[in-house]
């Protein structure tokens, strides 16, 4: 346990789960998109829907998409800033079966045309869990560098990615594999100890059978 999780973090109020956690979700979504978001459909679920407005959860999610951190004083003004920076967004209440009480579903489009759907929940104390990316379970926190690779469910992709990581002297902490159906779309969620260079991601994106690569860099505390 870190004593600065007890005394801290410095954050914009009023709630570590509904405000700080929501900023975090938006921020990680922007990083995953690897492009400036220009369109966002934001769905609030459970307690986020019930008490989100009073906690500024809506403003916090937009602030995160704009690249703000939980201690950014501009969070309450995020709607205005979004208009100024050309982020078009809609917010509505939704229901997701069996989701954590504090869950948001974000469908975002980047300025380069990239599209991403992120389902994430706020666990308390500002900590979050990424539940799904583009509808596929990932269940990772984004607290350490994480590489998420969407690929066709054909042989060899795991070996290809992991051996390349080994060549770069990057150590794998955890590795999860999921797929929607046999021969369909699969996803690797790889939590690593070091950071991945941009060139690695660019190389990976060009490989046959790789549909999409997303990467979360180490979060600045």
């Amino acid at each position: 346990m870190n004593i600065f999780d007890i005394l801290g973090p410095v954050m914009v109020g009023p709630s570590s789960s509904h405000t700080a956690g929501a900023v975090h979700i938006g921020h990680v979504t922007r990083k995953l998109l690897r492009s400036r978001p220009v369109e966002a459909e934001i769905g609030l679920c459970g307690s986020f829907a019930a008490t989100g407005k009073g906690h500024g959860t809506d403003k916090a999610l937009v602030a995160g998409l704009l690249g703000m951190q939980p201690d950014d004083m501009r969070i309450p003004e995020s709607f205005k800033i979004a208009a100024h920076e050309g982020l078009d967004f809609q917010i509505k209440n939704i229901e997701i079966r069996d989701a954590h009480p504090n869950t948001a579903l974000l469908k975002v489009t980047g300025e380069d045309g990239r599209v991403l759907e992120v389902q994430a929940s706020s666990l308390g104390g500002g900590r979050i869990m990424l539940n799904k990316l583009d509808g596929i379970v990932v269940n990772c926190t984004g607290e350490c560098p994480t590489l998420i690779v969407h690929n066709h469910d054909t042989p060899g992709h795991v070996a290809e990615v992991t051996s390349m990581l080994a060549k770069e002297s990057i150590n794998i902490a955890t590795l999860q594999l999921h797929r929607e159906k046999r021969g369909g779309l699969a996803v690797m969620v790889i939590e690593i100890d070091q950071t991945v260079p941009d060139s690695f991601i660019k190389w990976l994106e060009k490989q046959e059978g790789i549909v999409k690569v997303t990467y979360i860099d180490r979060e600045e505390a």
Binding site: I6, L7, G8, P9, V10, M11, V12, G13, P14, S15, S16, T19, A20, G56, K59, D71, M73, I75, P76, G125, G126
Partner: peptide, 21 residues
């Protein structure tokens, strides 16, 4: 009140109890 009004505070240990210390 600053916390409730979305100003910057230090969670200690939480945002709701940020005024005590």
């Amino acid at each position: 009140e600053s916390n409730a009004c979305m100003k910057r505070i230090v969670a200690a240990p939480t945002a709701g109890a940020c005024g005590v210390i």
